[in-house]
């Protein structure tokens, strides 16, 4: 850790103090992120819109008492149904102990890949977001996805391309719709189907010999942080059995063809790609441009 105090003999207490500072700084940062500019500057009043029929002037008689928000069982709703709105559950479990872990059965791995593919148009496409998001500010995404987060049995994966962290919603859109209208079933009907079939994620990278480290079978653009998927907060079946080895690409090499390092133009589909055509009437030289000074050397 670059911020660790130098030549202090109280290493542990230094670490604890440093840890607290970092923790306060990080949580302060995320609290800040959660507030949008408009919320901070109080330019937009927060208000609840009610129907006229429910206004206070109406005489209340024999009306069943509404369940308070806090008493409602929200766990049965939405894509985050497995989450629990209980603070004690938000504690982070320690990562699994390092060391060789049991191999994941192939069918479990395939199921995990399938679940992963369901959120992507093709392997390499930005995944859609399986939960509702705030429309205002994409920065709130990083509160959970900046470092990865576990809430009960749900995992918020760590951002795999931290250098592009500015505007999440530019590429990641909610799969459940940004907004649901009252007559959504009619309005949301798709125009037509789409017959696009994208590339699938390859299940395994080839090994040079049994026991050799597998090569990276997928493209790595926008996936520079391997730990996003393969780390302790990644998809269960895709996690590395040796997270303590911090330099993944030292042993697992990406193929140049997958990596834009080897740009091979596609083979010509048409003769036209190699056959030149000339416009027939261009017999005379072009007229000189008006008042064109000669180009600089």
């Amino acid at each position: 850790m670059p911020a660790a105090p130098k030549s202090s003999k109280r290493i542990e207490s230094g670490f604890i103090a440093g840890g607290i500072i970092v923790l306060v700084a990080v949580s302060g940062y995320f609290v800040g992120l959660r507030q949008t500019n408009s919320a901070i500057s109080m330019t937009r009043p927060v208000s609840v819109v009610r129907k006229h029929a429910q206004s206070a002037h109406a005489e209340v008689k024999d009306v069943p008492v509404a369940v308070r928000y806090i008493d409602q069982d929200w766990s049965a709703h939405g894509s985050n149904a497995q989450w629990r709105n209980s603070l004690v559950d938000f504690q982070q479990f320690p990562d699994a102990a390092p060391g060789q872990q049991a191999a994941v059965p192939l069918e479990v791995k395939m199921a995990a890949l399938h679940a992963r593919a369901a959120r992507r148009a093709y392997d390499g496409a930005p995944p859609t977001v399986p939960h509702p998001i705030t429309q205002d500010s994409s920065a709130a995404c990083l509160a959970c996805h900046g470092q990865g987060l576990q809430v009960k049995d749900r995992f918020a994966s760590k951002i795999s391309h931290p250098t592009f962290g500015g505007s999440c919603t530019q590429c990641h859109v909610p799969s459940g719709g940004a907004f649901t209208a009252a007559d959504a079933p009619v309005l949301a009907a798709a125009l037509t189907g789409n017959s696009f079939q994208g590339t699938e994620a390859p299940p395994n990278g080839p090994r040079a010999w049994p026991g050799a480290p597998p090569t990276i079978p997928h493209r790595t653009l926008m996936r520079s942080d391997c730990m996003s998927c393969h780390g302790p907060k990644g998809l269960f079946a895709l996690r590395t059995p040796h997270p303590e080895r911090q330099s993944c690409t030292q042993c697992h090499v990406p193929a140049a063809a997958n990596d834009q390092r080897l740009f091979m133009p596609a083979p010509p589909l048409d003769a036209a790609k190699t056959t030149t055509a000339t416009p027939a009437p261009a017999s005379d030289p072009a007229p000189a441009p008006l008042a064109a000074p000669p180009p600089k050397p």
Partner: peptide, 30 residues
Amino acid sequence: AEDDARLRELHDWIASRPGVAFVDVVHVNF
């Protein structure tokens, strides 16, 4: 370092020093 994440940070810090081309891991002990 005391955990995996900090070890990675330290690794990245070394890799980002001027003049450093690669940082390879040859031994791990936990």
